[in-house]
Computed example of a mutant assay.
Amino acid sequence: MFPEQFFSVQDGRVVISAPQASYFAKAIAGDFNPIHDPDARRFCVPGDLLFTLVVSRFGLSENMTFKFRNLLGAGVPLEFRKTDDGDTIHVVDEAGKIYLEVSRSGGLTQDQSTIEEFSRCYVAASGKNFPHTLKPLMESHGVMFNPDRPMVMYESMSLTLNQLEASHPELELNNAHLEVAGKRGNVTLDYHLRSSGNTVGEVSKRLVLGGLREYCPEAMAGIIEEFYRLKARGTEWGMETPDQPAGA
Rank of each mutant, 00 (worst) to 15 (best):
Y99W: 08
L100E: 02
L100F: 03
E101W: 02
V102N: 04
R104C: 09
S105M: 00
S105P: 00
S105A: 10
G107C: 03
G107H: 06
L108S: 00
L108I: 07
T109V: 09
T109R: 00
Q110M: 07
D111P: 00
Q112V: 13
S113F: 05
T114P: 01
T114M: 14
I115G: 05
E116R: 08
F118Q: 02
F118W: 04
S119T: 15
R120D: 14
R120F: 13
C121Q: 05
Y122Q: 08
Y122D: 05
V123S: 01
V123G: 00
A124R: 07
A125I: 01
A125F: 03
A125M: 05
S126P: 01
K128H: 14
K128C: 04
N129Y: 05
F130C: 03
H132V: 09
P136G: 13
L137W: 12
L137Y: 11
L137N: 08
M138K: 07
M138Y: 07
G142P: 04
G142M: 07
M144Y: 03
F145T: 12
F145Y: 14
N146I: 05
D148A: 10
D148T: 11
R149Q: 11
R149D: 10
P150F: 12
P150E: 09
P150A: 06
M151H: 12
M151T: 12
V152T: 11
M153V: 14
E155T: 04
M157R: 07
S158R: 08
S158P: 02
L159Y: 02
L159G: 01
Q163C: 11
Q163W: 12
